[in-house]
Design a protein around this nucleic acid. Structure first.
Lengths: 254, 254
DNA sequence: CGCGCGAAAAATGTGCACATTTTTTGGAGG
DNA sequence: CCTCCAAAAAATGTGCACATTTTTCGCGCG
């Protein structure tokens, strides 16, 4: 009912419309990125239903296109797919959040253990520079940058190992926790205190594994302790149009 | 319900019987499991092309069904999907394999660090019992069981933490390495020496983190050292029918 | 014998027309 | 006012007919 497109019969006058059965992989990717971005940005609140027809209308693509993207996001566990009932933004429990933080904590312990074997001046320098960035963002009160840089610190640590599998796993955890903060937002100033990050770098510089792990562990426990259950079920604005207001649809219904 | 029935407008009514457009989620799952199983079992060799038409024929389902499963396996990075060129069993390089083993090693270091805090008699007992199983399999020369139990040991370790995220990540790594052994198979007797597993349990019992990690690390390095590049490109039998010989198709072409 | 190079064949990608749910709606009855 | 229930409406699931590649094949030329 939405983007009804003249699909000319068999062979008659097919010449005109450039794209009839055209393959456009970039379009899939654009829709995927748009939804994923809205998800990571926290614009799509937990529990929101993502129905196919409205999304197809918003993005100006066929429903099958949307369907494929939705299922892909479901396979990545970024959306909750229920048979015959569509896709929803997952509503993580407090235990889910704790589990993600714990996984990050355990992973980082392993990363630090391995990292002290390969730490060199260049790495320390890079991390120190990053700390300076974090401090700058904190002092100027740039909360968005603080949150971003705070996550980036841990990414730098795992990236220093140069192992794509580990990097991917961490990215997965971070992206999941970023969605969660929209539900259980700490609401305090900086998520990760810069000082705690600095202590990790210090321990690394000293090649002190035990201290690095201890500091990292305390750091995570500190963050976890700040989580609080916002027991407000929230009305969740079901208005998808406003969420994807930035997208430029090729054609909208109206 | 079934207000309308006549569906075969032009298509020759070949599929008369019962379900025409029925929803059967179990069927998707069956196909998915069958292909995944063949993949993990090593029956599907690296580099093999998984074309849709033959698979649809083998499993007796529509091509769309196959297509969906293939894309799902691609999203899970178990198959390599190339636009317009279909799905192939990935052909991991030696570096890929090393990366997976390293990731497992790093992860286990973190797991052990966390585990010594929660280790109790029940866990030690469970692991000891597992070691007995491994020894039994080794002494009676049951290679298949040895390989399986060897992987299970590490699963037990991470499961002891009770963190689904970590368990999933390990399962992911293990499943990937299991595919890889078909290319770079150690070909020696037991993949993981039981003694090395026993040493890990011993260190856990003593609550000695450093030793546990050191032993685990040596263990993995030992396994990694056995990897060898089988530079034989292998003719890879492209015969999918024999691979899925066990499946009972509802209808086969010829 | 190898090497293009076009045409045929096969395989992948996509919109659409339905079937099959699920959800909403609108009363009748308590 | 609330509950229950059947019918309508909406949303999801699936096969199919193509369009669009990609791959294979055949054949003439150097």
């Amino acid at each position: 009912m939405a983007t009804q497109r003249g699909r000319n019969g068999k062979g008659i006058g097919k010449g005109i419309g450039k794209g009839i059965g055209k393959a456009n992989p970039a379009e899939d990717e654009a829709v995927y990125q748009a939804i994923l971005h809205a998800l990571l940005e926290g614009k799509l609140k937990a529990g929101v239903k993502l129905a196919e027809p409205p999304l197809a209308d918003i993005f100006g693509v066929s429903r099958e296109r949307i369907r494929k993207v939705l299922h892909r996001l479901g396979a990545e566990r970024r959306l909750e797919m229920i048979p015959n009932r569509g896709a929803r933004v997952p509503r993580p429990t407090l235990d889910d959040v704790r589990r993600v933080y714990e996984a990050h904590r355990v992973l980082e312990a392993g990363v630090l253990t391995q990292l002290v074997r390969h730490v060199d001046d260049a790495l320390i320098e890079k991390l120190t520079a990053h700390l300076a960035e974090e401090r700058a963002a904190a002092t100027r009160g740039d909360r968005a940058a603080s949150v971003r840089l705070s996550g980036a610190f841990h990414v730098h640590l795992v990236e220093a190992l140069g192992n794509a599998e580990l990097t991917r796993f961490l990215a997965d955890l971070l992206s999941r926790s970023s969605v969660m903060v929209s539900v259980y937002e700490p609401a305090t100033d900086s998520i990760c205190a810069v000082d705690e990050h600095g202590a990790i770098v210090e321990a690394l510089r000293a090649r002190d594994v035990a201290r690095a792990i201890a500091v990292s562990r305390e750091h995570f426990l500190h963050v976890e302790s700040r989580l609080h259950l916002d027991d407000d079920p929230a009305p969740v604005s079901e208005d998808l149009t406003s969420v994807f207001a930035t997208v430029k649809p090729k054609r909208r219904k109206r």
